[in-house]
């Protein structure tokens, strides 16, 4: 089975975020980046499927030069090769534009299965996978916890709300968006890191950005929904204040 995994590079979760001077995005100077966490689970699922069923795992990432570090890490974890879609203007493209870029890079690969995370930690739109499947004309299923290869295609376990699940049978080729937590993530081994240096990363140039259907006009710090009373002092002093609140305001003691 040939599996493509679309991964995104995003700011580290505990990065200090500052709004950029133009108010349209965040200040990217001094930010450290990492693989989008749900995409790390998509990669893990792909590697496990390959271990069970054989085949090839190809990771695909769009972005500027810095995303090659995320691709290298994926290679070190066990992906066979990488495709870097070189684009410095992701902000100029909406979901449809990004999905179109991925579709262009993937078409020639004739993959059996495409995996990606269910959403990104930065934009959180949660739709690149579904739009990509629609552009490629293949079936999709979202928020997937488990994937099983069957004679006729796939049997996947889909998460629904409130602790409900559902199995879905689907033909190949197909696209799945993977939920976090279905598998345990692996670390790259020293051997893996060494091997990654010999693996191929193809660079393709993205076509020029087209017109956008939606645009991000402005980013800003959210207004507080509640007036938060911040408690300060030593841990013991804070504890005393909290107990007062629990007794007289919240009334649970």
């Amino acid at each position: 089975m040939k599996i493509l995994v679309a991964i995104k590079q995003v700011p580290e979760r505990d990065a200090q975020i500052r709004v950029a001077a133009d108010g349209k995005w965040i200040d990217e100077d001094d930010l450290s980046y990492t693989i989008n966490e749900p995409d790390a689970y998509a990669l893990e699922e792909a590697l496990q499927l390959k271990e069970k069923n054989g085949g090839e795992v190809v990771v695909v990432c769009a972005g500027p030069e810095r995303v090659t570090s995320t691709l290298r890490e994926a290679l070190a974890k066990g992906a066979d090769r990488a495709i870097h879609i070189e684009a410095d203007d992701l902000g100029e493209r909406d979901t449809l534009g990004i999905a179109q870029m991925l579709a262009d890079a993937m078409k020639g690969e004739a993959a059996d299965l495409i995996l990606t995370g269910l959403q990104s930690d930065d934009l959180g739109l949660g739709q690149t996978g579904v739009v990509l499947a629609e552009l490629l004309g293949i079936p999709h299923a979202t928020i997937i916890m488990q994937v099983e290869k069957t004679d006729s295609g796939l049997r996947v376990k889909r998460e629904l709300e409130d602790g409900w699940f559902q199995h879905v049978e689907m033909p190949l080729p197909a696209l799945l968006t993977i939920q976090s937590g279905g598998n345990k993530l692996r670390y790259a081994t020293l051997m893996g890191i060494k091997k990654a240096k010999t693996k191929e990363t193809a660079t393709v140039t993205a076509s020029a950005a087209g017109a956008k259907a939606v645009s991000l006009e402005k980013v800003y710090l959210p207004e507080k929904q509640k007036k938060t009373e911040m408690l300060t002092g030593t841990p013991a002093e804070i504890a005393t204040q909290l107990v007062e609140k629990l007794k007289f305001e919240v009334r649970v003691l």
Binding site: M230, T232, I238, L242
Partner: peptide, 27 residues
């Protein structure tokens, strides 16, 4: 903190045990 009525910025490993102690003492 946007949805909190009371907020504490600090090391939970110090604050939580102190709070447990204070709650037990209060009870």
């Amino acid at each position: 903190f946007e949805v909190a009525d009371y907020g504490v910025v600090g090391d939970l490993f110090e604050i939580v045990p102190a709070l447990t102690k204070a709650v037990l003492a209060a009870k």
